[in-house]
Amino acid sequence: MPPKDGRTTLATVAASAGVSVTTVSKVVNGRADVGPETRALVESLLEQHDYIGRRSPSPKGSPATARIELMFKGDLNAYSTEIIQGVLDAGSEAGVSVALSARPPRPAGAEPDRPRGWARDLAAAGRRAVIAVVDELTSGDLAALSRAHLPLVVIDPLNLPRNWVPSVGSTNFAGGMAAAQHLLALGHRRIGYVGGSTKSACNQARLHGYRAAMEAAGVTVPDEYQRTGDFRYQDGVEGGAALLDLPSPPTAVFAGSDETAAGVIEAARGRGLRVPDDLSVVGFDDTDVARLASPPLTTVRQPLREMGGVALRTALRLAAGEKLDSHHVELATELIVRGSTAPR
Rank of each mutant, 00 (worst) to 15 (best):
L145P: 03
E215P: 04
D285L: 09
D277A: 13
S97M: 11
R114V: 07
E322W: 08
V154D: 12
E82M: 12
V253A: 07
R232I: 05
L10K: 03
G169V: 11
A32P: 06
S197V: 03
A125L: 12
A108N: 07
P161V: 12
R7W: 02
R7C: 00
M307D: 03
L150A: 04
H49D: 01
V130H: 06
A148Y: 09
V237Y: 12
L184S: 06
E111N: 07
G270S: 09
T9D: 01
A174F: 07
A129G: 13
T198G: 07
V154L: 10
S16K: 13
G169P: 09
T287K: 10
V98D: 06
G209M: 13
T9Y: 01
V264D: 10
H188A: 08
V329M: 06
G109E: 07
R39H: 03
L70V: 05
G30F: 01
I191E: 12
T81A: 13
A342W: 00
V237G: 04
A262S: 15
R55M: 13
T314K: 10
L335A: 00
V281A: 10
S170K: 01
L150K: 04
W164N: 14
G30I: 02
P247I: 06
S16M: 11
H182R: 02
S20V: 04
D235E: 09
D286S: 14
S25L: 01
D113C: 08
A17L: 03
V21H: 09
S62V: 00
D121K: 15
D5L: 02
L279M: 07
S294T: 14
L122Q: 09
K26Q: 12
A110F: 05
L45M: 10
G53H: 01
E69N: 06
K26R: 15
S16Q: 11
D258G: 08
A110D: 14
T341A: 00
H327D: 03
T298Y: 12
T228S: 14
R190D: 11
